[in-house]
Design a protein around this nucleic acid. Structure first.
Length: 693
DNA sequence: TTTGTTACCCTTTTT
DNA sequence: GGGTAACAAA
């Protein structure tokens, strides 16, 4: 393709988008970073396109792509953005541009932080070999320390490990003192302030001893670099252009980083939608966005994007009605060119079983009408809400893929295997060592601790372990394990060392777990992802920072090109879109979750979550309202069923944007089975499904 | 000291 | 319906 005329890459943009793309980048070139810009982009208004074009516009005006820092929320978003920038630039230059190395600094806050901390490790006095603790690891480490400090026994009210980590993390990310965090967010833990402070101190020390970092340490480390003048100077000089996606979901610590990189705001572009702020539980605050204008030297400019190309107008009307109920926003309305007669459906259904059946029927009807499964999605407030639906899909052999919720990486056997790799990478990582040692029969916490102490005394040379007399039950495997650790301790022969680990581990896993086939299949997947990774260190870091590495690592994974229905939590659905969207459990207690109705702020966030859900739909939107729901929570309540009320977010105005769907009357659509008779076999489905590919 | 058993708790969203 | 803690047995 021939090179386009100058400015041709802006041709497909609307005036609002073009203004946002070109703001502050004049014809004299991009050598001098312009004043700060906030793009207030409504849902579906081409936010990604606009940001990608802005990056491309900078490059086309002479900015060095290696000096553009592009911060996104997920790695998928970063990759998506990089691909688009390459496409735009290639077209403008009239030839393929290899951006592989050029736009190297596009990534998540955590991913970029990890890279910078490693690069500057020497100046920071830390080990560049540090390994990254995922949430589970961090909790386990806290749990050990909790016990050591004597907080675990006796006193049953002391917060559990998960809550300890949440409190610690919230304090770090919000930048608020522990006492205030406890009082405001975790008042029932306030009596333990002194103990928690001691615990967190011990946690920080343990992490340093073991050369490990948790997610929050990565951000905190980066922020501290920026608080140190000589280092900050180098970082600022390196990145004159900083672009941040999803700004509404940044927390004060992240804002500190951004403001540290661009103290007067020059060169900074932030994009966000305050109506889609849904990460308050992670200390994110919309204030970063709402107060953006006042935070910088030259006052920031705010440019809105309001034209929605994604959804048909009836969906936008519903979205605007939800937005109108929201307390804090810039007060934009979405307008869109895609007229349609079809309003969203409100679908009251009998119960969860009925809900699953109806959704599957509609999904299949859509497919008959030519809509691929992957153009349809089922959204839920929390991951386990898909339970019965997954059963129904499995029974009908409909392939699906689930995003959000329990990750494969949290499965015990995967953590086992990774413990070997992590221990090989960083023998000071006691958590990994502790886990892998106890895989041996006869080895429990006491012996594992002894072995790790011995190892440390020997300067982390595993051959010394051979002299340690193992517990009787471990006598046979002990020398084998020592040999394996010796081999791993030498230079990493990636990825073939993985085969050696599995030769040792797979038989052990067979003893430890039942249903071993599925677990071994997971490990095969992991090994395949490992093949694609250049080094052990990179593999481990990628896994910790983005579990979707190598794709298809989530549970229930069909092969590449196969068609599959998407199941997702609303959180994981952010930034994505489908032609047909089904939102399950639009009833009070589910949306909003009754875990989050304590304060007005929490309820507002749940409302925005609902907003995110409905704005994912391009053409079809179905809201399901089961009238009777099963409660797992409290077995004391009757038979475990409760009569459910529609979500409090379904106000009159919002119902007015929808049509109420009617249960098909018997005979009209299908013979409805006697209400109370248990269906033993869905014969019709069986017969039909024989012929599905 | 490890492993098995039982009673009891709480139950969300994720880099 | 799963994790956790305390207790019992090997």
């Amino acid at each position: 393709m021939a090179a386009g005329a100058p400015g041709d890459h802006l041709r497909d943009l609307n005036p609002e988008q073009r203004a946002a793309v070109t703001f502050g980048i004049d014809e004299s070139g991009a050598s001098r970073p312009g004043p700060p810009l906030l793009i207030a982009a409504g849902a579906g208004t081409g936010k990604t396109t606009t940001l990608a074009h802005r990056v491309a516009h900078l490059v086309l005006h002479g900015a060095d792509p290696r000096r553009i820092l592009l911060l996104t929320f997920t790695r998928r978003a970063a990759e998506d953005m990089t691909a688009r920038v390459r496409r735009i630039c290639s077209r403008a230059f009239g030839r393929e541009i290899d951006f592989g190395a050029a736009l190297a600094w596009a990534g998540t806050f955590h991913g970029i932080a990890a890279r910078l901390l490693r690069e500057f490790a020497r100046e920071l006095g830390i080990s560049p070999e540090f390994t990254i603790l995922d949430r589970g690891d961090a909790q386990d480490l806290l749990d050990v320390l909790r016990e050591e400090a004597g907080f675990a026994g006796g006193d049953r009210r002391f917060p559990k490990k998960a809550l300890c980590l949440e409190i610690c993390s919230f304090a770090v990310n919000s930048g608020r003192p522990l006492g205030e965090v406890l009082a405001r967010r975790f008042p029932w833990c306030a009596p333990y302030e002194t103990e928690l402070r001691r615990l967190f101190r011990a946690y920080a020390e343990a992490k340093q001893r073991q050369a490990v970092m948790d997610y929050d340490d990565l951000l905190l480390g980066w922020a501290e670099m920026l608080a140190c003048a000589p280092l900050a100077e180098r970082l600022r000089a390196r990145f004159p252009f900083v672009l941040v996606d999803e700004y509404q979901d940044t927390n004060p610590l992240q804002a500190r980083i951004v403001e540290g990189l661009c103290p007067d705001g020059r060169g900074l572009t932030a994009v966000g939608d305050e109506l889609q702020a849904i990460y308050g539980f992670r200390a994110a605050t919309v204030r970063n966005m709402l107060d953006f204008r006042r935070r910088f030297g030259p006052e920031a400019t705010i440019l809105p994007l309001t034209t929605n190309y994604r959804s048909v107008t009836p969906v936008l009307e519903l979205a605007n009605a939800i937005a109108a109920d929201s307390r804090e926003s810039f007060g934009r309305r979405l307008i869109g060119p895609r007229a349609s007669e079809e309003r969203p459906w409100l679908m009251p259904v009998a119960d969860e079983t009925d809900q699953a059946r109806r959704v599957v029927e509609l999904v299949l009807d859509n497919r008959e009408a030519g809509l691929h499964l992957r153009e349809q999605a089922v959204l839920v407030r929390s991951a386990h809400h898909t339970g019965l639906l997954e059963l129904e899909l499995a029974r009908r052999r409909i392939p699906y893929r689930k995003y959000g919720g329990l990750r494969m990486l949290e499965a015990a056997h995967v953590k086992d295997l990774l413990a070997f790799l992590r221990f090989a990478e960083n023998p000071r990582d006691r958590l990994a060592g502790f886990r892998l040692l106890q895989l041996l029969p006869g080895v429990g916490p006491a012996f594992a601790r002894k072995a790790l102490d011995r190892l440390e005394a020997l300067g982390f040379d595993p051959s010394g372990l051979a002299l340690l007399p193992p517990p009787p039950a471990a006598r046979r495997l002990w020398p084998e394990l020592v040999r394996l650790l010796e081999r791993l301790g030498r230079a990493s022969d990636w990825p073939s060392e993985l085969a050696a680990i599995r030769a040792f581990y797979d038989p052990l896993a067979g003893e430890l777990y039942d249903e071993i086939e599925g677990r071994l299949a997971d490990l095969d997947l992991l090994a395949a992802a490992a093949e694609a990774s250049p080094s052990r260190r990179r593999f481990l870091a990628d896994l910790a920072l983005d579990p979707a590495v190598g794709s298809g690592l989530e549970a229930g994974r069909p092969v590449r090109d196969e068609d599959y229905l998407v199941l997702s939590t609303i959180h994981s659905a952010k930034g994505r879109e489908w032609k047909a969207v089904f939102v399950l459990f639009v009833i009070d207690g589910w949306i909003p979750s009754d875990m989050a109705t304590g304060s007005a702020e929490e309820i507002e966030e749940e409302r925005r979550l609902f907003y995110v859900a409905v704005t994912r739909a391009r053409d079809q939107l179905r809201l399901l309202l089961p009238l009777r729901c099963h409660i797992h929570a409290d077995p004391r309540i009757g038979d475990g069923h409760v009569r459910a009320a529609p979500s409090r977010f379904l106000t009159e105005a919002i119902r007015g944007c929808c049509v109420r769907w009617r249960q098909p009357v018997a005979g009209e659509r299908e013979p409805s089975p006697a209400a109370d008779a248990a269906v033993l076999l869905d014969l019709a489905a069986e017969l039909r499904d024989r012929w599905r590919s």
